[in-house]
Design a protein around this nucleic acid. Structure first.
Lengths: 242, 242
DNA sequence: TTGACTTATATGTCTAGACATATAATCGTG
DNA sequence: CACGATTATATGTCTAGACATATAAGTCAA
């Protein structure tokens, strides 16, 4: 046994090294800027080859926990610009996860040549065909959110033939467009007449608005606006790492 | 030269292998579920050792782009549960980044033994001392957000002596608490009398609310509620990776 | 003091092997 | 056919080297 441990070491050695270092960083024992021991020191401490500690350190670097600089060493990174992971699963999953019955209703569907407003909303210059969809999601038969969506058919031609009367466009896209990037803008408004009626709330009640633009490899796919009743719905974001 | 390329290969070989595979996944050429070539096939294709392709594949696995299964092979992962990276920098940075003048005003500060409400809000059971702070952030002398914060002194004893009349508690904590986890809850409300006056908006105007709980290694540090005028402020979240 | 040159060193990448281990596939048996 | 045992195989981890390369630090001259 060339391992430095006498006890049974469940995880593999490089994972143990990684976990050891991670622990010291997370507990603050090694604060941001602190220099991690050199590879050759860790090699001596753990009695293994350099490739093994290198693998541990490389993974920590990939996870942005440390920064590695040639000739200088490896250093604990300072907490990144604060960022949060905001879970926005598709509506069905979101509502189902709450243990509530999911309901869906297509309220409008139009196929048309892109208007100037459409192009502006999708952020594209070229004209093309689009599908405009409005629909409503409900939980236990209570309105949960209304959706107003535009899909660029030049990016997703299949969407022209898709049947959105049963499957919500968000789910459909999620299963047909394998990899996406998106930008969300979250704001608050008060419900106007139309929103109030669709969501069964009072005019002037607060609403949470999420505007989401989704694209794939620099190609716009869809723009969607979701309107939630603000007092009943909450977006939960979990954030890790500074 | 054992490299399979004749052209000058700027990046290193394993990075090129990783990029090649990543590209095929991102363009959809290899859809979710597709089996990546076996390591020994990639070894043959690139004319390198197994460790080199293994490093490329390991990094893709760490980035959740592929999933590796013993004996079966490596497979393109299906787009994860949709998640967004929500940037919420500290207020000064946020406002400064907008090119506006940052203003800060401490409106209240109390040091007290934790009340039942405080303990509930911080999610702790044991009693202890807390600091309660209210303050206001402004951009170009226009109210930008009001903040209502509770700091657990048993986790951050230094906060008792900190001078929050000049430095906002958010910035102070960010620089004194090196590593944190947090949970955000985003909702919408309409402004009540107090909020309307502090933010200089009309009663009944929409407001964006962010409740943030921050802790470090399972230890609660602070709970904060931020109130933004909903029509002027926007939270932008950028999301990558399905 | 400053700038240009040199050197030492820590990380970056890679190899050609090795054995471990989980598991899909196959084979036998009741 | 169902089920348990066996086998083949792809990944997981590790070694003991090697050379490449960026750069901090030291050296020396203007």
């Amino acid at each position: 046994m060339s391992l430095a441990t006498d006890a049974a070491d469940q995880p593999t050695l490089y994972k143990r090294i990684r976990a050891d270092i991670e622990k010291r960083i997370l507990t603050g024992e090694w604060p941001p800027g602190h220099r991690i021991p050199f590879e050759h020191e860790l090699v001596a401490r753990y009695g293994c080859s350099r490739m093994t500690v290198n693998k541990a350190l490389s993974e920590l670097a990939q996870a942005d926990l440390i920064e590695r600089r040639r000739r200088a060493g490896s250093f604990v990174r300072r907490p990144q610009h604060q960022s949060a992971v905001l879970k926005i699963a598709d509506m069905r999953a979101e509502i189902t996860a709450l243990g509530r019955a999911y309901g869906y209703e297509l309220t409008g569907r139009k196929l048309r040549a892109a208007t100037a407003a459409d192009r502006d909303r999708l952020g594209v210059k070229k004209a093309g065909k689009v599908v405009a969809i409005t629909c409503r999601h409900s939980a236990d038969n209570v309105p949960f959110a209304i959706e107003d969506r535009l899909i660029d058919l030049s990016s997703v031609p299949d969407a022209a033939a898709a049947d959105f009367s049963r499957e919500p466009p968000g789910s459909w896209l999620l299963h047909h467009v394998p990899w996406t990037e998106a930008e969300h803008t979250i704001s608050a408004i008060v419900a106007d007449d139309r929103a109030a009626e669709a969501l069964d709330i009072a005019v002037g009640a607060p609403c949470l608005v999420i505007d989401r633009y989704t694209w794939r490899s620099a190609r716009t796919i869809t723009a969607v606006r979701l309107l939630y009743p603000g007092d009943s719905h909450r977006l939960v974001a979990r954030f890790k790492g500074g």
